[in-house]
Design a protein around this nucleic acid. Structure first.
Lengths: 346, 346
DNA sequence: AACAAAAATGTGTTCGAACACATAAAAATA
DNA sequence: TATTTTTATGTGTTCGAACACATTTTTGTT
């Protein structure tokens, strides 16, 4: 049997006590060169792996993890994240863990800051952060670091050395996926990139997606003028979009870079125009409804639930089992049509 | 602090010893009604969760898991499974576990049986099985059960009460996804369902996929004659397929139900015909090459790596942490084009 | 009431790592 | 050489659950 060797076994093999082996393993010093070498000789031969279960049992501290994310009541996009948190809580409930969520208003940087200040005051062991606001995110991440709080990020990457632990998607590539999809279902004609953003909080997201989208068609030899960028804002979305359609009669496809694709689909449904392909983002209820009804052709799934779940899993495994936290984890860019949507929503 | 309550705490609260609490928890009897009730009263109030880490430390047995799957050298489809096994080994190497793979020849039922007999002789704690051969699979699964070996299955479901633990995909729905994709990129004309199978081992797979595919178009009102089923076998694939194309000049799209889509794409490339859409299965090297080159439009990803990894994770968590093994786990049916393929191959 | 048999309850040990503490050996001082 | 100081090494305890074993209490019998 290849039973795992323990510290006791090593001690026996090296002819020393378990205390000495422990000192060698943890580099605590106070070991004679002779003892050090005999222990090391054994270690080199046997490929020792400490029993993480025993280690954790000894260090039985309650680790507290906090997830800071937008309140889903402002934007249903965040709803699956809550499920991801609940799933992680369930998965790890037998361990000494405390996982809590704190919500901020995604339309208010002030709310973002105060919520993070409150979390900081709790001095948790780690924070999983949706860093919506670039400048403010860097500030609070530095505050966390000063206090020795481990910070992971998800959803969007803060482009700096500050966020080493990130779970999300490659947004440039995501734009390319959207472009390829439109290219598959519609041929030669104009395409529109539509940004629907109330505030400019998603600016970087949308720019990256647009860059990917345009690069794809550039590489394909499509002239740049065939792709038109349109920015729409409430409450003038319908008015401006209808005007845009009239100005561009040969429009073949639309790429909506936010989760508001359903707003475009709704306008199409009301006006009964000839078919224009629509690619949108995120499996929120309204989008999925139009996907099944046929107005939206594909949705790109950003898998927010899995983002949170994976990031939390990494943190838990770090604290409980001493594993290292992975740097950047890029999730697959899932392509969703009406036939496979159900599997991504569970 | 909401520190977890231990058996000792419960004993204190109930005014008994930890031994008595243990007997109540494990229903070992030899407890007076009075003690039983006082312990139960405490248990009802405090929602006790045993510390799985401590439990596992005590029962430190080496659990052995064996994966029985086809030798990837016969069919590269199985290669990712090996990676999934390696990943699981790495993930759980700190625990007292032994995960081993045993390969059989996917073209020989005899090989399937002998390999399983060898595994049975090892009497592992659990077997994760790719039950390619229906009848033989049921036989060996019963043998495992008789010996008290836990059996999980992946890849394809044995339609019986025997395989309670299954990780795979809904193949009927998978056929519908393929249909919807063809429907998106090609319009009115004939479609072909092509089965390329050396043996009939995949018969059930392919039938389910065909059923899904046909049902989709039936619901859409397409007449049944517009969808033609074609069975191809080596070495006459090219001959028969070319003949088929000549007989069906208005063919718009092809749905290949196996991982051999590249063989069809190759023939197209050689003969420079007008564009016919191709949907195939599985991210094997040759398929992905044609996906990027443009001959194949979409691939449906069955995620064999994740199937194995998830199934193993469930088994490990069952043995190490006493969790219950989930019944049927259906993975998402991933739609892959040239722009998002990279994320599914990592 | 006295004693044996049965049932109930408590105590002690194990798992492996981690670390406090005690002891032993070596080095430095008087 | 004797004694203190430093350094090295070994021993014992903890974490929580599980279970063997010892002890106490209750019940049944003469």
């Amino acid at each position: 049997m290849d039973k795992k060797l323990t510290i006791k076994d090593i001690a026996l093999l090296a002819g020393v006590s378990k205390g000495t082996v422990d000192r060698v393993l943890h580099k605590r010093g106070k070991v004679s060169t002779k003892a050090f070498e005999s222990v090391n000789a054994v270690l080199n031969e046997i490929d020792y792996e400490p029993n993480l279960i025993a280690r954790n049992l000894k260090n039985n501290k309650i680790y507290s993890l906090v997830v800071v994310l937008p309140d889903p009541s402002f934007d249903p996009y965040w709803l699956p994240c809550v499920k991801g948190i609940e799933e992680a809580i369930k998965e790890f409930k037998a361990f000494n863990l405390s996982i809590k969520a704190h919500y901020f208003n995604p339309e208010s940087t002030k709310s973002f800051i105060t919520v993070n200040e409150n979390v900081l005051a709790l001095s948790p062991d780690a924070v999983l952060l949706a860093p919506l606001f670039y400048k403010e995110a860097i500030t609070v991440m530095n505050l966390y670091k000063e206090k020795g709080v481990v910070v992971s990020t998800f959803n969007n990457q803060v482009q700096s050395a500050e966020d080493l632990n990130f779970v999300g998607q490659d947004l440039y590539q995501s734009g390319r996926v959207g472009a390829k999809l439109l290219d598959s279902i519609a041929n030669n004609g104009k395409f529109a990139i539509i940004h629907i953003n109330e505030k400019f909080k998603n600016a970087v997201h949308m720019q990256e997606k647009e860059r990917g989208f345009r690069t794809f068609f550039k590489e394909k030899g499509v002239q740049e003028e065939a792709i038109i960028t349109l920015k729409l804002k409430n409450p003038s979305i319908e008015l401006n979009f209808t005007k845009f359609l009239e100005e561009n009669p040969n429009l073949q496809g639309i790429f909506v870079t936010t989760s508001k694709g359903y707003q475009i689909a709704k306008i199409f449904n009301q006006t009964q125009r000839s078919k224009i392909a629509i690619i949108g983002y995120d499996l929120i209820e309204e989008n999925v409804a139009y996907l099944h009804q046929g107005s939206i052709d594909f949705l790109i799934h950003q898998n927010p639930k899995r983002q949170v779940y994976l990031a939390l899993t990494s943190l838990v495994e770090h604290f409980i089992f001493g594993k290292s936290i992975p740097g950047t984890t890029l999730l697959p860019i899932d392509i969703v049509n009406c036939e496979n949507s159900i599997f991504y929503m569970a």
